[in-house]
Design a protein around this nucleic acid. Sequence first.
DNA 1: TAAGTTTATATGTATATACATTAAATACAA
DNA 2: TTGTATTTAATGTATATACATATAAACTTA
Lengths: 149, 149
Amino acid sequence: MRLEDAIQQKNFTDPFNKAVVNLLYTQSYIVSKQSCLFRPFGLSPEQYNVLRILKGQSGKPITVSSIQDRMLNKMSNASRLVEKLKQKGLVVREECPTDRRQVDILITDKGLEVLKELDSSVDSNNKKLINLSEQEVDQLNMLLDKLRG
Amino acid sequence: MRLEDAIQQKNFTDPFNKAVVNLLYTQSYIVSKQSCLFRPFGLSPEQYNVLRILKGQSGKPITVSSIQDRMLNKMSNASRLVEKLKQKGLVVREECPTDRRQVDILITDKGLEVLKELDSSVDSNNKKLINLSEQEVDQLNMLLDKLRG
DNA sequence: TAAGTTTATATGTATATACATTAAATACAA
DNA sequence: TTGTATTTAATGTATATACATATAAACTTA
């Protein structure tokens, strides 16, 4: 569906402006379609993302600031987010032995289990969300990677 | 910059999954680059968007629920957002004459002035944000419009 | 027209985000 | 080594978001 129809705006000053609005609108589309998957586990999209980051570490600890760097939403608060995950027993915090300022974060077995339950449904859901051919989605990824400079 | 490098993730299960993460990440990139423009006016991105919707009405009133339909973030709260804009003197609320449940919203002269000051810098900023050629940005818009189905 | 249903908006509440500040540990330079 | 600056994480605070519920008006239909 054309963005112009979706938000009932007749035209944009130029295609760059349309692209900005289009990206904001499409993100909202994705988040709203994803939230129902996370809900049963009491996770927000960004909490799920942090669990994925930790899983990607395959056992290696990672500091709070490294998590922050790799989060999708740069403005959100890794420290408090990790605290929420800890309260749910999905991660543990350990004092970093080489630098006592830092805090090492590790995913727990329970955290890995939650991901195991979620990942396949998230993957198939994402495929359904992106109504494009293989070729088109590759093109989209290429354009997104390029546009950020 | 490739998403894989930006968030230090080696690979994705498939290009559709990468596209989802890529869209979330790109939205965050845009919002963080835009926020400094809105800040001096005390506006959030969505508040700015609502002002744009109202300006697009060119004087015609629009109800709260119609604003909600046309907002970029479908989950946000049009009623409270309009209240914030009203407190800043940028919009007025009027009881709808034909249906007393509804509330007509109109942008004020002050609201139009704020937009006048913002629009050109937002437009040029957006152009800078999207590091693509005219042809590429058209392609991106086409793909985004298509992917939502 | 009365009773139940739907719609439009507002409000309550918990959590998340944005941004500033604090506190502690470390790095570094005089 | 001492004082200053920087880094890391946590915390404070205001606002925004997400979602449920409430309230009032309008519609529906028996």
